[in-house]
Protein backbone atom coordinates (compact mmCIF):
# COMPACT_ATOMS: atom_id res chain seq x y z
CA UNK A 1 0.00 0.00 0.00
CA UNK A 2 1.47 3.34 -1.01
CA UNK A 3 0.49 6.10 1.41
CA UNK A 4 2.56 8.84 -0.23
CA UNK A 5 1.04 10.09 -3.47
CA UNK A 6 3.60 12.69 -4.43
CA UNK A 7 7.39 12.83 -4.36
CA UNK A 8 9.69 15.84 -4.39
CA UNK A 9 12.83 14.75 -6.22
CA UNK A 10 16.09 16.66 -6.59
CA UNK A 11 18.16 15.97 -9.68
CA UNK A 12 21.29 17.20 -11.46
CA UNK A 13 21.79 17.83 -15.16
CA UNK A 14 24.17 14.83 -15.34
CA UNK A 15 22.63 13.17 -18.35
CA UNK A 16 23.33 9.53 -17.39
CA UNK A 17 21.32 9.83 -14.17
CA UNK A 18 18.09 7.87 -14.44
CA UNK A 19 16.12 10.98 -13.44
CA UNK A 20 16.00 12.07 -17.09
CA UNK A 21 14.50 8.77 -18.27
CA UNK A 22 12.00 8.39 -15.41
CA UNK A 23 10.93 12.04 -15.67
CA UNK A 24 10.62 12.14 -19.44
CA UNK A 25 8.77 8.83 -19.73
CA UNK A 26 6.40 9.58 -16.83
CA UNK A 27 7.19 6.22 -15.22
CA UNK A 28 6.36 7.35 -11.68
CA UNK A 29 2.93 8.58 -12.69
CA UNK A 30 2.17 5.60 -14.93
CA UNK A 31 3.87 2.86 -12.92
CA UNK A 32 3.23 3.93 -9.34
CA UNK A 33 0.44 6.46 -9.57
CA UNK A 34 2.74 8.95 -7.86
CA UNK A 35 2.90 12.62 -8.79
CA UNK A 36 6.53 13.72 -9.05
CA UNK A 37 7.79 17.25 -8.58
CA UNK A 38 11.31 17.47 -9.98
CA UNK A 39 13.79 20.21 -8.95
CA UNK A 40 17.02 20.83 -10.82
CA UNK A 41 20.17 21.61 -8.78
CA UNK A 42 23.65 22.74 -9.81
CA UNK A 43 25.58 20.54 -7.37
CA UNK A 44 25.16 17.84 -4.73
CA UNK A 45 25.97 20.13 -1.77
CA UNK A 46 23.16 22.48 -2.87
CA UNK A 47 20.79 19.50 -2.92
CA UNK A 48 21.85 18.39 0.57
CA UNK A 49 20.97 21.88 1.84
CA UNK A 50 17.48 21.46 0.32
CA UNK A 51 17.13 18.05 2.05
CA UNK A 52 18.10 19.69 5.36
CA UNK A 53 15.37 22.29 4.86
CA UNK A 54 12.87 19.44 4.35
CA UNK A 55 12.24 20.39 0.72
CA UNK A 56 13.05 17.00 -0.89
CA UNK A 57 12.00 13.36 -0.48
CA UNK A 58 14.51 11.77 -2.88
CA UNK A 59 17.66 13.00 -4.56
CA UNK A 60 20.30 12.02 -7.12
CA UNK A 61 23.77 12.97 -5.92
CA UNK A 62 27.35 11.88 -5.29
CA UNK A 63 28.01 10.21 -1.95
CA UNK A 64 30.61 12.57 -0.41
CA UNK A 65 28.23 15.57 -0.15
CA UNK A 66 25.53 13.22 1.14
CA UNK A 67 27.90 11.87 3.82
CA UNK A 68 28.84 15.43 4.84
CA UNK A 69 25.13 16.20 5.17
CA UNK A 70 24.41 13.03 7.19
CA UNK A 71 27.30 13.80 9.57
CA UNK A 72 25.83 17.27 10.10
CA UNK A 73 22.39 15.89 10.91
CA UNK A 74 20.59 15.92 7.55
CA UNK A 75 17.93 13.14 7.74
CA UNK A 76 19.28 11.31 4.69
CA UNK A 77 20.21 7.77 3.77
CA UNK A 78 21.49 6.15 0.58
CA UNK A 79 19.08 3.47 -0.66
CA UNK A 80 20.61 2.66 -4.09
CA UNK A 81 23.59 3.20 -6.33
CA UNK A 82 23.46 4.46 -9.91
CA UNK A 83 26.95 4.95 -11.34
CA UNK A 84 30.59 4.64 -10.29
CA UNK A 85 33.74 6.40 -11.46
CA UNK A 86 32.28 9.61 -12.88
CA UNK A 87 35.16 12.02 -12.29
CA UNK A 88 37.65 12.96 -15.01
CA UNK A 89 40.61 15.40 -15.05
CA UNK A 90 41.28 17.42 -18.23
CA UNK A 91 44.01 19.86 -19.17
CA UNK A 92 44.75 22.37 -21.87
CA UNK A 93 47.74 21.93 -24.20
CA UNK A 94 51.12 21.50 -22.59
CA UNK A 95 50.19 19.05 -19.84
CA UNK A 96 51.25 15.40 -19.90
CA UNK A 97 48.66 12.72 -19.19
CA UNK A 98 48.77 9.23 -17.74
CA UNK A 99 49.88 7.76 -21.09
CA UNK A 100 53.01 9.95 -21.19
CA UNK A 101 53.84 10.02 -17.47
CA UNK A 102 52.84 6.49 -16.52
CA UNK A 103 51.68 7.22 -12.97
CA UNK A 104 49.01 9.40 -11.39
CA UNK A 105 51.62 10.89 -9.02
CA UNK A 106 53.76 12.03 -11.90
CA UNK A 107 50.78 13.57 -13.75
CA UNK A 108 49.67 15.45 -10.61
CA UNK A 109 53.22 16.76 -10.03
CA UNK A 110 52.91 18.37 -13.44
CA UNK A 111 49.89 20.36 -12.19
CA UNK A 112 52.02 22.44 -9.79
CA UNK A 113 51.27 26.14 -10.24
CA UNK A 114 48.08 25.52 -12.24
CA UNK A 115 44.53 26.85 -11.83
CA UNK A 116 41.86 24.14 -11.66
CA UNK A 117 38.13 24.57 -12.28
CA UNK A 118 35.96 22.20 -10.21
CA UNK A 119 32.26 22.05 -9.21
CA UNK A 120 31.29 23.17 -5.69
CA UNK A 121 33.44 22.54 -2.62
CA UNK A 122 32.38 19.24 -1.06
CA UNK A 123 31.22 17.74 -4.37
CA UNK A 124 32.69 14.33 -5.22
CA UNK A 125 34.93 15.91 -7.87
CA UNK A 126 36.24 18.49 -5.42
CA UNK A 127 36.96 15.89 -2.72
CA UNK A 128 38.70 13.50 -5.13
CA UNK A 129 40.92 16.25 -6.52
CA UNK A 130 41.77 17.77 -3.12
CA UNK A 131 42.75 14.27 -1.99
CA UNK A 132 45.17 14.04 -4.96
CA UNK A 133 46.65 17.42 -4.02
CA UNK A 134 47.18 16.32 -0.40
CA UNK A 135 48.44 12.85 -1.29
CA UNK A 136 51.02 14.02 -3.83
CA UNK A 137 51.94 17.22 -1.95
CA UNK A 138 51.31 19.75 -4.68
CA UNK A 139 50.28 22.82 -2.67
CA UNK A 140 50.88 25.25 -5.54
CA UNK A 141 47.68 24.20 -7.29
CA UNK A 142 44.90 26.82 -7.10
CA UNK A 143 41.40 25.35 -6.98
CA UNK A 144 38.49 27.48 -8.20
CA UNK A 145 35.03 26.09 -7.38
CA UNK A 146 32.00 26.80 -9.58
CA UNK A 147 28.32 26.67 -8.59
CA UNK A 148 27.48 25.22 -12.01
CA UNK A 149 29.87 22.91 -13.91
CA UNK A 150 28.77 24.56 -17.17
CA UNK A 151 30.79 27.63 -16.16
CA UNK A 152 34.02 25.61 -16.27
CA UNK A 153 34.33 25.37 -20.10
CA UNK A 154 33.47 29.09 -20.20
CA UNK A 155 36.35 29.78 -17.76
CA UNK A 156 38.66 27.56 -19.81
CA UNK A 157 37.70 29.44 -22.98
CA UNK A 158 38.68 32.71 -21.30
CA UNK A 159 42.01 31.16 -20.14
CA UNK A 160 41.01 31.58 -16.48
CA UNK A 161 41.82 27.93 -15.70
CA UNK A 162 44.36 25.39 -16.98
CA UNK A 163 42.69 22.20 -15.76
CA UNK A 164 39.09 21.03 -15.34
CA UNK A 165 37.65 18.32 -13.09
CA UNK A 166 34.13 16.98 -13.35
CA UNK A 167 31.70 14.56 -14.97
CA UNK A 168 32.07 12.74 -18.29
CA UNK A 169 29.64 15.34 -19.71
CA UNK A 170 31.97 18.14 -18.63
CA UNK A 171 34.85 16.19 -20.17
CA UNK A 172 33.14 15.92 -23.56
CA UNK A 173 32.25 19.64 -23.46
CA UNK A 174 35.83 20.64 -22.60
CA UNK A 175 37.26 18.44 -25.36
CA UNK A 176 34.78 19.69 -27.98
CA UNK A 177 34.67 23.37 -27.07
CA UNK A 178 38.01 24.18 -25.46
CA UNK A 179 40.43 21.76 -27.09
CA UNK A 180 41.28 20.26 -23.69
CA UNK A 181 42.16 16.60 -23.34
CA UNK A 182 41.69 13.95 -20.67
CA UNK A 183 44.90 13.57 -18.64
CA UNK A 184 43.47 11.41 -15.83
CA UNK A 185 40.57 9.18 -16.98
CA UNK A 186 37.90 8.10 -14.50
CA UNK A 187 39.43 4.64 -14.00
CA UNK A 188 42.75 6.08 -12.76
CA UNK A 189 41.38 8.24 -9.94
CA UNK A 190 39.44 6.47 -7.19
CA UNK A 191 38.30 2.86 -7.79
CA UNK A 192 34.53 2.39 -7.62
CA UNK A 193 33.97 5.96 -6.44
CA UNK A 194 30.21 6.49 -5.90
CA UNK A 195 29.57 9.10 -8.54
CA UNK A 196 25.91 9.10 -7.65
CA UNK A 197 23.33 7.20 -5.66
CA UNK A 198 19.70 7.60 -4.62
CA UNK A 199 19.30 9.41 -1.31
CA UNK A 200 16.03 9.32 0.63
CA UNK A 201 14.62 11.30 3.53
CA UNK A 202 14.75 8.97 6.56
CA UNK A 203 11.05 9.34 7.27
CA UNK A 204 10.37 7.82 3.83
CA UNK A 205 11.93 4.51 4.93
CA UNK A 206 8.55 3.51 6.33
CA UNK A 207 7.18 3.54 2.77
CA UNK A 208 8.82 0.28 1.66
CA UNK A 209 6.53 -0.38 -1.31
CA UNK A 210 6.92 3.16 -2.60
CA UNK A 211 10.71 3.02 -2.35
CA UNK A 212 10.93 -0.43 -3.90
CA UNK A 213 8.57 0.67 -6.66
CA UNK A 214 10.82 3.65 -7.37
CA UNK A 215 13.94 1.47 -7.32
CA UNK A 216 12.43 -0.99 -9.81
CA UNK A 217 12.07 1.94 -12.24
CA UNK A 218 15.54 3.24 -11.38
CA UNK A 219 17.09 -0.16 -12.07
CA UNK A 220 15.19 -0.46 -15.36
CA UNK A 221 16.61 2.91 -16.45
CA UNK A 222 20.15 1.96 -15.31
CA UNK A 223 19.87 -1.18 -17.44
CA UNK A 224 18.77 0.93 -20.40
CA UNK A 225 21.88 3.14 -20.11
CA UNK A 226 24.08 0.04 -19.93
CA UNK A 227 22.40 -2.26 -22.46
CA UNK A 228 20.87 0.14 -24.98
CA UNK A 229 22.78 3.42 -24.90
CA UNK A 230 21.28 4.50 -28.25
CA UNK A 231 17.74 4.03 -26.92
CA UNK A 232 18.63 5.79 -23.67
CA UNK A 233 20.24 8.65 -25.60
CA UNK A 234 17.04 9.12 -27.64
CA UNK A 235 15.00 9.57 -24.44
CA UNK A 236 17.61 11.91 -22.91
CA UNK A 237 17.43 14.08 -26.04
CA UNK A 238 13.62 14.19 -25.74
CA UNK A 239 14.03 15.24 -22.11
CA UNK A 240 16.77 17.78 -22.85
CA UNK A 241 16.08 18.82 -26.46
CA UNK A 242 18.97 21.28 -26.61
CA UNK A 243 21.36 18.32 -26.62
CA UNK A 244 22.24 16.39 -29.76
CA UNK A 245 22.27 12.60 -29.77
CA UNK A 246 25.95 12.31 -30.71
CA UNK A 247 26.97 14.34 -27.67
CA UNK A 248 24.84 12.20 -25.33
CA UNK A 249 26.23 8.93 -26.74
CA UNK A 250 29.79 10.21 -26.43
CA UNK A 251 29.15 11.06 -22.77
CA UNK A 252 27.53 7.68 -22.05
CA UNK A 253 30.62 5.89 -23.34
CA UNK A 254 33.20 7.73 -21.20
CA UNK A 255 32.64 5.59 -18.08
CA UNK A 256 29.77 3.19 -18.79
CA UNK A 257 29.36 1.76 -15.28
CA UNK A 258 25.63 2.00 -14.60
CA UNK A 259 23.79 -0.12 -12.02
CA UNK A 260 21.28 0.44 -9.21
CA UNK A 261 22.80 -1.97 -6.68
CA UNK A 262 24.81 -1.19 -3.55
CA UNK A 263 27.53 -3.87 -3.52
CA UNK A 264 30.26 -4.03 -0.91
CA UNK A 265 32.73 -2.39 -3.32
CA UNK A 266 30.44 0.65 -3.64
CA UNK A 267 29.98 0.94 0.12
CA UNK A 268 33.68 0.38 0.89
CA UNK A 269 34.72 2.98 -1.67
CA UNK A 270 32.31 5.43 -0.01
CA UNK A 271 33.75 4.70 3.45
CA UNK A 272 37.27 5.43 2.13
CA UNK A 273 36.12 9.04 1.70
CA UNK A 274 35.61 9.42 5.48
CA UNK A 275 39.29 10.04 6.46
CA UNK A 276 39.67 12.41 3.49
CA UNK A 277 36.54 14.33 4.53
CA UNK A 278 38.01 14.50 8.06
CA UNK A 279 41.30 15.90 6.73
CA UNK A 280 39.39 18.46 4.69
CA UNK A 281 37.53 19.55 7.83
CA UNK A 282 34.07 18.35 6.79
CA UNK A 283 33.83 15.60 9.43
CA UNK A 284 34.85 15.45 13.08
CA UNK A 285 37.41 12.59 13.53
CA UNK A 286 36.16 12.10 17.09
CA UNK A 287 32.66 11.30 15.83
CA UNK A 288 33.17 8.66 13.14
CA UNK A 289 29.95 8.05 11.22
CA UNK A 290 28.63 4.47 11.14
CA UNK A 291 27.92 2.66 7.84
CA UNK A 292 24.27 2.16 8.87
CA UNK A 293 23.76 5.92 8.98
CA UNK A 294 24.92 6.21 5.36
CA UNK A 295 23.34 3.14 3.72
CA UNK A 296 20.06 1.26 3.99
CA UNK A 297 20.41 -1.68 1.60
CA UNK A 298 17.10 -3.42 2.43
CA UNK A 299 15.11 -2.09 -0.50
CA UNK A 300 17.69 -2.42 -3.26
CA UNK A 301 18.57 -5.93 -2.00
CA UNK A 302 14.97 -6.94 -2.70
CA UNK A 303 14.87 -5.19 -6.08
CA UNK A 304 18.37 -6.18 -7.25
CA UNK A 305 19.39 -9.33 -5.33
CA UNK A 306 21.87 -10.61 -7.94
CA UNK A 307 25.47 -9.49 -8.59
CA UNK A 308 26.10 -5.90 -9.54
CA UNK A 309 26.64 -4.72 -13.14
CA UNK A 310 29.02 -1.80 -12.56
Amino acid sequence: MIAVRSLRIGFLSTLYHTSHIIREEGWLEQGLGVRARWSLFGTGPEMVAAFSRGELDLGYLGLPPAVIGIARGAPLVCIAGGHVEGTVVLARDGYAGIEERGTVASVVEGFEGSRVGIPAAGSIHDVIFRDLVMRYRTPGIRIINYAWADLIPHAAGKAEIDLAVGTPALAVLCVRECGMRVVLPARTLWPFNPSYGILAQRRLLEEASLLEGFLVLHEKACNLFREDPEGAARIVVQALPWLEGGFVLEVLRVSPRYCASLPEAYRESTLKFLPVLEKLGYLDPARRIETERIFDTRFISNVHPDSHHY
Partner: peptide, 10 residues
Protein backbone atom coordinates in the same frame (compact mmCIF):
# COMPACT_ATOMS: atom_id res chain seq x y z
CA UNK B 1 24.94 38.09 -17.57
CA UNK B 2 25.46 34.43 -18.32
CA UNK B 3 22.64 32.39 -19.88
CA UNK B 4 22.88 28.59 -20.16
CA UNK B 5 20.97 25.32 -20.04
CA UNK B 6 22.87 22.90 -17.80
CA UNK B 7 24.45 19.85 -19.43
CA UNK B 8 27.76 19.41 -17.58
CA UNK B 9 26.37 17.65 -14.53
CA UNK B 10 26.88 18.28 -10.84
Amino acid sequence: LIFFMPVAGG
